[in-house]
Amino acid sequence: MASPSPVRPGPFLLASLAAAAGFAAVYLVFVRTNAGQNLDERGLLESAAMFGAWSRTALAFLNGMPAFSVVLAAAALCWAALIRRRWVASAIALASALTANAATYVLKQYVLDRPDLGHNALGGNSMPSGHATLAASAAAAVYLAVTPRYRPLAAFAGTTYAVLAGVVMLVNQWHLAADVVAAFMLVAAIAAPATWLALRTERAPGTPPQLRIRWERVSLRIALGAAVVAALALMLVLVVPPEGRRVGTVPQFFAAGAAAITASGYACSAAACRLVTRAARRSHTASARP
């Protein structure tokens, strides 16, 4: 039997620190400043003006996505542990998900504070989003539990699910866009070192390099495209005269929020694929040495 992969912790710790820094930046800009709160709230108010009660009725079935996330993650962990005998990876995945959701609760309820700057559409602090954390941590748990061969695909598919859930929360006016982005950053900060722990217990990843690189590139292209959309949406706001920037008449704020959710999610997917690709290359190099 091959020995576990000689994976270095450095890149994973750096990724975790980068995600934590992203979380802090989102909080400082979109919660602690007047401009950030105003921008974030306008996206939510535009969502209400554009979709209103229609989304709460026609898309009510999507409100069950957080509960479905739990079922999805539980099924994946049971399959990995009982069928594939991946006990350690399943335990790491479960611990990672529980840690992310516990951290979200503690941060929202006891640590982070939202100053009243006149932009409290939801009332009180709503960052990070508990629902977005649940969806993203479930996707991360599946990513950690599956075999190394399918991990890049799981990262992309899980991100797609989490991004869809995040956009639905904005459309249904559950959360501000920054709440969702912060939740993604928090889950990524915890999942990165968890990935290193999982890789340490496994043999070298068996996914062909071209497949790992393919999912990384697809994720990166979507993230960059969404970032461009967000930037252009905010730039188009400047074209509209201030007196014409009434809620519901300038949907660019909503577009910027939805694009930011998409960009942050797929950036995490690209990073996850990159980390397992680097680990696979190092494992292959180490195993090839005489």
Rank of each mutant, 00 (worst) to 15 (best):
M1G: 13
S3H: 14
S5R: 04
P6R: 04
V7G: 02
V7I: 12
P11L: 09
F12E: 02
L13G: 14
L13K: 06
L13F: 14
A15D: 07
S16V: 11
L17K: 04
A19F: 05
G22E: 08
F23E: 06
A24F: 09
A24K: 01
A25N: 06
R32I: 02
R32D: 08
T33V: 14
N34L: 14
A35K: 10
G36T: 06
G36P: 10
Q37E: 14
L39C: 00
D40N: 13
E41K: 07
E41L: 10
E41W: 07
E41Y: 02
F51D: 03
A53I: 01
S55R: 05
R56L: 13
T57A: 15
A58K: 13
N63H: 11
S69D: 07
V70H: 06
C78F: 15
W79E: 14
W79I: 13
A80R: 04
A80G: 12
I83D: 13
R84N: 12
W87S: 06
S90I: 08
A91C: 13
A91V: 12
L94V: 07
A95S: 14
L98R: 06
A103P: 00
T104Q: 12
Y105V: 10
Y105K: 01
L107C: 12
K108Q: 12
Q109L: 09
Y110R: 07
V111R: 12
V111L: 14
R114D: 05
P115I: 13
A121Y: 11
G123T: 09
G124D: 15
G124S: 14
G124R: 13
M127C: 05
P128W: 05
S129W: 02
G130P: 07
T133C: 10
S137G: 10
A139G: 10
A140Q: 01
A141C: 10
V142S: 00
Y143I: 00
A145E: 01
V146R: 02
L153A: 15
A154F: 08
A162V: 03
A162N: 06
G166M: 08
G166Q: 04
V167K: 00
V168I: 13
V168P: 02
V171G: 05
H175A: 02
L176S: 02
A177T: 03
A178P: 01
A178N: 10
A178Q: 08
D179E: 13
A183M: 09
F184E: 07
M185G: 00
V187P: 02
A189W: 05
A189H: 06
P193D: 04
L197A: 15
A198N: 03
L199E: 06
R200T: 07
E202N: 01
R203H: 07
A204K: 07
L211N: 09
I213A: 15
E216H: 11
L224R: 11
G225Q: 00
L234Y: 10
L236N: 09
V237A: 04
V239N: 08
V240R: 15
P241A: 15
P241R: 12
P241K: 12
R246G: 15
V247C: 05
G248E: 08
T249D: 15
V250H: 06
P251C: 07
P251H: 04
A258I: 06
A259E: 05
A260Q: 03
G265Y: 02
A271R: 01
C273K: 04
C273S: 12
C273V: 07
V276D: 04
R282F: 00
R282M: 03
R282L: 11
S283V: 07
T285C: 00
T285P: 00
S287T: 09
R289G: 03
R289K: 13
